[in-house]
Design a binder for these strands. Sequence first.
DNA 1: TCAGTTGTTTATAT
DNA 2: AATATAAACAACTG
Length: 260
Amino acid sequence: MPELPDVEGFRRVLAEHGRGRRVAGVRVLDTSVLHDVTARALDAALSGCRFDEPDRLGKWLIARTDGPSVLIHFGMTGELVWCEPGAEGHRHDRVVVDVGDGELRYRDMRKLKGLWFAEDEAAVATLLAAEGPDALSLDREGLDGALSGSRRRLKAALMDQGTVAGLGNLLVDEILWRARLRPDRRGADLDAAERAALHREMRRVLRESVRAGRVPPRRSWLTGARDEPDPHCPRCGTALRRDRVGGRSTVWCPHCQDGS
DNA sequence: TCAGTTGTTTATAT
DNA sequence: AATATAAACAACTG
């Protein structure tokens, strides 16, 4: 689930329910989601701290306080959920932050990622050092620059968080489908018109997805068709292809994308 | 039982 | 050197 738009949704949850409130306590229900801090140290460091405006870079959520920060990466199945006081537990709740009038819960079935602790801004910067520019604020020149220096396929280049931060499997397929570019095209081979289309469609897909807090599975989107039993292109009706590109299952239209 | 999954890292191969 | 591929991580679904 979590790509840039999903994490942006979690950032809004934290902004609405965390910002300005004090941490009353942190309960760690599964220590395996803590990556560089113990449950006891996390509770001790965070209790009494007041949440600031949360930030996001790529798929990372940055929970700042008037003390240390917590960085959350949601992996494939993580989410941040707001719960009223006394709300019943969920099987996959891993960390619960009590903020007095309710709880912020890190919930994650597969636990592929989780929480990192950052004592100060220098530690935050270190944890995020490998991230490329955030996809949401990437301009034409930035995207051109990210693609020009490499012979990689578009799918692999756009999925690489060090090249562009925030795009995942669904988003990249959606953007390439809208821009009518085959996922196995070499990014450096695109002409000016193709690069412009790629940037334009990235912006459009991101804008609508961020608003929804997910890649919306609308019938008119690739995302709304790709998981059907016999998926067809919402634009031209051609049977969609599913291949492995860049190690990930990739859905694309053999007619629209670099066709006609 | 087996394949597949919206993410990332590591090892290995080309 | 850069790029591609497979496996591993973990837990579940069909």
